[in-house]
Amino acid sequence: METLLVPTLCKVDRIIQETPDVRTYRLKFKDESLTEKFSWQPGQFVEFSLLGSGECTFCISSSATRKGFFDCSIKRAGIVTADIHSDLEEGDEVGIRGPYGNWFPLDEIKGKNLLFVGGGIGLAPLRSLIQYAIDNRADYKDFTILYGARTSADLCYKEEIEEWKKNTSVKVVLTIDKPEDTWKENVGVVPKILEEVVKPEIANTKVITCGPPIMIKYTLQSLDRLGFAPKDVITTLEMKMQCGLGKCGRCNIGSTYICKDGPVFTYEQLKALPDEF
């Protein structure tokens, strides 16, 4: 018996094909009375299990302000995610444990300009906060989303991005790495667009970023050049995790448990960690 690790059943309500290798799974609790009890903050994650295949860590990509369901956006990468993509259909049941981990510093970003910088599947954890912030729009000042992907096909949440674009209080900047015939928006890697097109205001701005390691690396350099203080740059980390509870030791970096003390860190905090991720 390991009571801590027993999952709860959820039903797959809807599957949305975001890109060729990313799908969003909209989940609802099988036992509906749990829906109310299950509350989470933007940035937290769950342990998602396809029974028989194994357990994987995914962030919740929707906000608790949208009630009745939660989303996990899953990119096909390893064995379990391949099984999820090939076996899981609408109406099927999966195991969920969570929510785990810390969340974006909601109090600190209140009253600030928000700049979201996302790349590829890295928009998933940001989306939770974006939805949350849109639903509490009055709490924030300027609202900018910079989102990039390798090709236009690799952009996630296309429908929702269209909605964001229609929202006059949100500025959306999209970019892809290489020109495409039908593409009318920016072309170029995220850090370049950040410096040349977005030209963000530095004062009173919080940057929230997530994306592939290479994008993060150059984005952090760009933000440095632009003059952002490391404490104003917030990111969410990915490490191999299994328990999510600060027990199994897998996500240890130094004495930090990424699953408990993270996954959300400021750039300032990251700099203090041993270089092991």
């Binding site: 390991e2 299990s49 029974l51 028989g52 295949s53 194994g54 390893g78 191999k240 199994c248 897998r250």
Partner: peptide, 30 residues
Amino acid sequence: FKISDEKIKDTGVRYKSYDSCNNVYFTLEA
């Protein structure tokens, strides 16, 4: 520790069992 499933057709058991940080797969991401 690691968490692994043993599956036989429609039923299965999930185990918690020892793992080692000296194992190269320990931190290998998908």
